[in-house]
Design a protein around this nucleic acid. Sequence first.
DNA 1: ATGAAAGCGCTAACAA
DNA 2: TTGTTAGCGCTTTCAT
Lengths: 362, 362
Amino acid sequence: MKKRMVQANSNGGSAHSQSAPAGGPQLPSSVTIMDVAREAGVSYATVSRVVNNKEYVKQDTREKVMQAITRLGYVANQQARSLAGGKSYVVGLLVRDLGSSYMGAIVSGVDDELSTAQYNLMLYTTHRRKTNERIYVNTLIQGMADGLLLILPRNPEAYLDTLNQSRFPYVLIDHQGLGDQVPAVGSKNWDGAYAATKYLIELGHRRIGFITGALELGAAIDRLAGYKAALIDHQLPIDPALIIEGTFFQPEGYSGARTLLNLEQRPTAIFASNDVMAFGVMEAVRDCGLRIPADISVLGFDDIDQASHVYPPLTTVRQPMQEMGRLAVKMLLERIKDPDRPVERVELPTTLIIRQSCQPPT
Amino acid sequence: MKKRMVQANSNGGSAHSQSAPAGGPQLPSSVTIMDVAREAGVSYATVSRVVNNKEYVKQDTREKVMQAITRLGYVANQQARSLAGGKSYVVGLLVRDLGSSYMGAIVSGVDDELSTAQYNLMLYTTHRRKTNERIYVNTLIQGMADGLLLILPRNPEAYLDTLNQSRFPYVLIDHQGLGDQVPAVGSKNWDGAYAATKYLIELGHRRIGFITGALELGAAIDRLAGYKAALIDHQLPIDPALIIEGTFFQPEGYSGARTLLNLEQRPTAIFASNDVMAFGVMEAVRDCGLRIPADISVLGFDDIDQASHVYPPLTTVRQPMQEMGRLAVKMLLERIKDPDRPVERVELPTTLIIRQSCQPPT
DNA sequence: ATGAAAGCGCTAACAA
DNA sequence: TTGTTAGCGCTTTCAT
């Protein structure tokens, strides 16, 4: 078993990859804490202390160890660490899919904050094979991860029980509707929609079309409510014909807009519940031979990257997606430290980003 | 300070969690292999055999154990398993960003295949803090993962050396340009571009605008080459004025198309090196008051979801992204099994998907 | 076919 | 301040 050629410290130039006869395990050359201890002439507990930045290590010793670590290229084995210490430095991320800028932005925030905290990210997508969900969450709980993040979960009730029972730390991202009793971060959808609608009204629009998101999601409901509230507050009627139900996908923006534009008294502005649908709206408007914003104003929600790249640049309600990811991680990390801390539910503010897709009606 | 109440195993029955005096780590109620062994009345080695589907277990015993497992809700602790067995059942995925359908599709394929193989996915994005990349890859190598997947890596040379030296299994996705000596999966970009251009030519187009991708990427180079080759093969001139350099982002599709449309002799068709840029082209065409495909034909590359959802639905070259992800995982898993197997480099075929954005010139 | 026992590499008491 | 020593939960020989 010792026939493996130990891959020597590949410092100096002479890297003779001996391509070991390799019968044994294909483990990469692994330098363990023991090797470092030997190299530095200390016990391996001391090395552990140095690695973990514990107190009670003479500065001198610390340096000696550090050098040995560098010299040997030692990197701690996470698995062992986790097994011994009870913490894996991994958090699980449960997502439906990853193809959208929306998800991309959130994940990017998550990832960023996680790496700052030296945590790793284990990704799980929901459309996975029908693995028994229970087993699945259990795996996570069973030491694979220290905490769990759920983005836009469709019916989290399934896991949440298990999670709560085992007091496993988790945070929901962009999900409302489960009361205050779950840790979650989202954004002020109602406020955002209200502000956007108000903006349109103040621009002079009186007939404002609205395309909803998937109404089983709290975010979609809140946006619709914000739209209605603004109308009411400005003594404008809520015309059901102007409200089209969508589910956050582009084709519905297109078809919704077609419907709206075919109305006898067509709207002068269309507010879509997310940017992607707004893009669909823009297409439809153009296909009808109308100009944006001269003939029709278009407004979106989210402010994904693309929003500023389409023509004309889309006026939209910015939701701080990256920030949401970041914050969720912060909250999760706190909960990992202390699972008993009171449940927090944060809603980040939204901002109306005015670009060029809206103008007063002509 | 240790007054925390230990949450006892909440299974029915008599699970006497010996409630270790240690009020220690707040690990969720964990059923270990020992508990199962006790419950089933066998040694824990036997339980291990059952769990790992090893031979030499009487059918009878196996069932007894299985039942105990179900009853207790046992799930193996991956960390321990990994530490003892030398395999982590985790593969790392190195990505630049996740906001695009393109990435989404590949990751979805990866994820799918991985879950079939009972593997977990550790996600790393490249825009992460400037963690020393060496340490970084080393962490992976050091037992965190059994293999590594790199999607569209920009300059993988940095890691590749380390990876190769430690004979750590990896596969590149959608990257060419490092010779045959690296395991990789991509697609036939040249073929796809050739076929698309040929299609346009056969439709009757003689002046075909082309917007390139980021030319430091092999895929972009190959697509351009395919376009040129088709032109040449059909005795058509290569007009530099018709070739606009882009980098795969939408705004370049827009601006590129504007440039093209302003040409004295403007093209009758525009072929963008990816769908996203094609969308930009579509916007520009419409903004110029022209119709697709009546006035200008537009053609893309990739066939991301959105391509079939825009209006008119985009004719494009389909690249089997999910399949690429899948295949990469298969190759990686093989290499994990046997790191010495010969290096493979696979290019999946592309398909021209004809929708409604092209027609003969009028 | 099953059990006993030796670690995997590390953290965290406990000694010294 | 440092060393010694239990395990963490599991896979794997090696016995039986």
